[in-house]
Simulated scan of single mutants.
Amino acid sequence: MNSIGSRNSEYLPAAILLLLAAIGFVGPSANAESCIREQAGQSVVCTANDVRITFADNVRDIFGAPLLECVRGESFSFIADFHIRTTATARYDIGLYFGTDGDPNGDGASSGVCSAQIIKDRHVDPAYPHAVVLGSAVAANLDGDACRDINSAQGWRNIAGKIVTLRIDNALCHDSDADEKLNLPNCATWSNGAAAACNSPNNTAPSSSSNCSCDLSFNLPILVAPGSNQVTENDHQISTAAPRIRPVLLSESITAPQGDAD
């Protein structure tokens, strides 16, 4: 048996994983959950604005390096500081939903493909390469479960809100408003008071159909760069192949058209 070839075959999977991670794709999202409608089991209207994501900054890749752009039509993973604000004294079991499919349904993160998140205390990213600290330094735990809550006493009612650092996997690089910046439609959900125990995004359905807010045109400071040789429809890649041209055979004659005689 070729021992060198055997060792190379052992290293190959790790090398492939490292390559995929370097370009921001590491397989299925570790935090991919249903969107709000699936969680609630019914349609939602999201007319309240008690909790919302005001803006995001400090965008970096999964290794923690600054991330300035993505390639239009491709999916990628990133980490950012999301600023969350409430207009209420306290809201419980906050759910943060991000539409990672470019929102073809036009409803934010109510339906489609979403990255569903809860607010957690500060912790090291559990997904490869475990390089960034996620979560919030000032989240409240008003009801004793795993889903953190927010309140005015800890500053969540300030205009700028408070920071929650999140990792978003497999987001479509998409610019829906032609400003060359990434659009990441999102929705926030909450309960008005302590309810059933919340331990994951699966438990963050809004306590009523109106207890959610959505932002369909949310921007992040990531430049959406054009890809090379791409044909896209609504920023979804539909073809990258060059047209095939059939060669002219020697047996085929090419005769110039004859003009009318004078």
Rank of each mutant, 00 (worst) to 15 (best):
S3W: 14
G5W: 11
S6G: 11
A15N: 05
L17H: 12
L19H: 10
F25K: 04
F25L: 10
P28W: 01
A30N: 05
N31A: 13
E33P: 00
S34E: 11
I36C: 06
R37L: 03
V44C: 09
A48G: 01
A48S: 14
A48H: 01
N49Y: 01
N49I: 05
V51M: 03
F55G: 00
F55P: 00
A56R: 03
D57K: 10
N58W: 00
N58Q: 13
V59F: 07
A65D: 03
P66A: 02
P66D: 02
L67W: 01
E69N: 14
S77M: 00
I79L: 06
D81W: 07
F82S: 02
H83G: 00
R85L: 00
T86P: 02
A88E: 15
I94Y: 06
G95T: 08
L96E: 03
L96W: 01
Y97H: 14
T100R: 14
D101K: 11
G102K: 11
D103S: 03
P104S: 06
N105F: 13
A109W: 07
A109Y: 06
S111F: 10
A116W: 11
I118D: 08
I119N: 06
D121W: 10
P126I: 08
Y128P: 03
P129V: 05
A131I: 12
V132W: 08
L134V: 08
A140T: 12
N141F: 05
N141L: 04
L142H: 07
G144L: 05
C147H: 02
D149E: 04
I150F: 05
I150M: 02
N151H: 07
S152W: 02
A153S: 15
W156S: 03
W156I: 05
R157S: 14
A160C: 00
A160R: 14
V164H: 07
R167T: 04
R167D: 03
I168S: 07
N170V: 03
N170S: 12
H174R: 04
D175I: 13
S176V: 09
D179K: 07
E180N: 15
K181Q: 12
L182D: 01
N183V: 05
N183Y: 08
N183R: 11
L184H: 06
P185T: 01
C187E: 03
A188F: 00
A188K: 05
S191R: 14
S191E: 09
G193K: 09
G193C: 05
A197G: 06
C198T: 06
C198L: 04
P201N: 08
T204N: 08
A205M: 08
P206A: 07
S207L: 07
S207A: 10
S210C: 02
S210F: 05
S210H: 04
S210D: 10
N211A: 11
S213A: 13
S213K: 14
C214V: 10
C214S: 06
C214L: 07
S217E: 12
S217I: 11
S217W: 10
N219D: 09
L220M: 05
L220T: 01
A225T: 10
P226S: 04
S228Y: 10
E233H: 13
N234E: 09
D235L: 00
D235S: 06
I238F: 01
I238M: 04
A241T: 15
P243M: 02
P243W: 11
V248F: 12
L249N: 12
L249A: 14
S251D: 10
S251G: 11
A256N: 13
P257L: 13
Q258R: 13
